[in-house]
Design a protein around this nucleic acid. Structure first.
Length: 458
RNA sequence: CGCGGGAUGGAGCAGCGGCAGCUCGCGUGGCUCAUAACCACGAGGUCAGAGGUUCGAGUCCUCUUCCCGCAACCA
């Protein structure tokens, strides 16, 4: 029996969970559930990223401690998982003691590629990023600008990412480290072709207390991004725990397109320095707009996952986002299209197919089902879609089957067979319908666990 | 030349070298087991424009026009 390890990124807890991250959870959840269905042993990990300047500042502005802030927000992300029926096995917080301790072990293991140097330049507080001179927006260098950079001149630790440019590129080109979809792979290859600079990986403690201390240097804490990436290893108990030995490298890491650089450049560099294999696949999903507009707190067009679930239920939420937001592209959410999908696809096509089958069995056979075998069907398109993280395609294939069943019923006309009194034939036809529904339920299981269960038990 | 993504029937999208397709909507018909549901058929596109490669181009190359993201809280 094989092992399967899938992760989501760990969202930064300075805001409410939104439908974008909800979709990421769903995608990883489908992969995890599908792997379990195949009989694999699964670790599905998600969590929250809780250190750094922005959180310290936000807590400060609210008059609470960072600890109180992250406790409150981390809980919201946990609630999102319950809301969406997410089957994660682990939930890691970067403020968990074991994570912090193991992060320090990782730092020490990276020592050969870490050096101290003076950083002079700009720091983007909001993005928690050092901004290279070449990319900096001149307007924001003025102190009066609302999002002015901080001018920094300080001693920091650096990681020799530049050493790994070619090696990372080679792994991606060989397919050993697969990046899906291909446009994202090309994008990162072009970044690598330009070469990677060494990155600053610490901050002076006097400016930021809310971080993991650098081992052996009381004056420095780890840069939040650098430390957050380590969660994928620390959650498995790197370096000594059995889980690390059995489950790393990750089968799939699910991330959003905005953080592809961290996961396709910095993270592989860290792993190579550690002498640890790279994840097998990095799946990069797009972003979701709302009614054609970018989601934005200032526009107030955000959609709360809770609101959708209240109105349509968890499985409808899962279905809509997995099928109607393209897996390989950006997508658009609208209440209208959700409503349409809910009525026409879930209620009419699938719901009705179940309903009419069940009704005929009750009416003609007093509820007794004949010998229902799970129907054969070419499941390759479904499995290929799933293997390629094309969740939308996989569901398309299931729906072909739902439609096929409705067509079959139309052609077989079981109600006429009933009138003719050919009970054997009728039993055969109805059993075939049931067999098809059971097969549909199997395929739906990773996507809509609740619905799959209902179909089986009707 | 900041970076990136797009332009395909009324709407939303797929197709990425071999007869233009899917879903919704619209029209007509069928059926009555089922949810005013389901099934069939039909109308509707010179695939943004120009040039090129090719036996053959939404599909590959070049140029042009126009949209939309990122750079500004956010996956």
């Amino acid at each position: 029996m094989s092992n399967y390890y899938v992760t989501t990124s760990i969202p930064y807890v300075n805001g409410e969970p939104h439908i974008g991250f909800a979709m990421e959870l769903l995608e990883a959840d489908v992969l995890a559930r599908a792997a379990r269905q195949r009989g694999e042993t699964v670790i599905f990990s998600t969590g929250t990223d809780e250190h750094g300047t922005k959180i310290a500042q936000k807590a400060d502005s609210l008059g609470i401690t960072p600890r109180e802030l992250v406790d409150e927000y981390s809980e919201k992300f946990r609630n999102l998982q319950k809301l969406l029926d997410i089957s994660n096995d682990r939930f890691i917080r970067t403020t968990d003691k074991p994570h912090e301790q193991r992060a320090q072990l990782i730092w020490k293991a990276l020592a050969k590629d870490i050096y101290k140097s003076k950083y002079v330049g700009w720091y983007d507080v909001k993005e928690e990023e050092f901004v290279p001179e070449a990319k900096a927006d001149p307007a924001r260098m003025e102190a009066s600008h609302p999002q002015a950079y901080q001018k920094l001149e300080e001693e920091n630790y650096f990681f020799r990412l530049s050493n790994y440019t070619d090696a990372i590129k080679a792994k991606i080109e060989s397919g050993e480290f697969q990046i899906l979809p291909e446009t994202r792979r090309n994008e990162i290859l072009s970044v690598l072709r330009e070469g990677l600079d060494d990155i600053s990986i610490s901050r002076p403690k006097e400016k930021l207390e809310w971080g993991v201390p650098v081992p052996g240097d009381k004056k420095q804490v780890m840069y939040v991004w650098f430390e957050a990436l380590m969660n994928y290893l620390t959650v498995l108990g790197y370096p000594e725990h059995e889980d690390f030995k059995n489950f790393w490298p990750a089968d799939v890491q699910v991330v959003g397109k905005d953080i592809i650089r961290f996961h396709a450049a910095i993270w592989p560099g860290m792993l190579m320095s550690l002498g640890v294999p790279l994840p097998k696949t990095l799946y990069v999903h797009g972003h979701i707009s709302v009614n054609g507009q970018k989601m934005s707190k200032s526009l107030g067009n955000g959609v709360a996952p809770q609101e959708i679930v209240d109105k349509y239920g968890t499985d409808a939420f899962r279905y809509y986002f997995l099928r109607h937001i393209p897996s390989y592209n950006d997508g658009d959410f609208s209440w209208e299209s959700l409503e349409a999908a809910y009525n026409s696809e879930l209620a009419n096509e699938l719901g009705n197919a179940v309903q009419r089958t069940a009704a005929m069995i009750m009416k003609y056979q007093n509820g007794i089902i004949g010998d229902a075998k799970i129907a054969q069907h070419d499941i390759n398109p479904y499995e290929e879609a799933l293997a390629a993280c094309r969740f939308d395609r996989a569901l398309d294939d299931v729906w072909d089957r739902v439609r096929g069943l409705n067509q079959y019923i139309e052609e077989a006309k079981p109600w006429e067979i009933a009138k003719l009194g050919d009970t054997d034939h009728l039993r055969e036809v109805l059993a075939y319908q049931v067999g098809n529904l059971l097969a549909i339920a199997d395929q739906l299981e990773p996507f809509m666990p609740e619905t799959a269960f209902k179909i089986r038990t009707v």
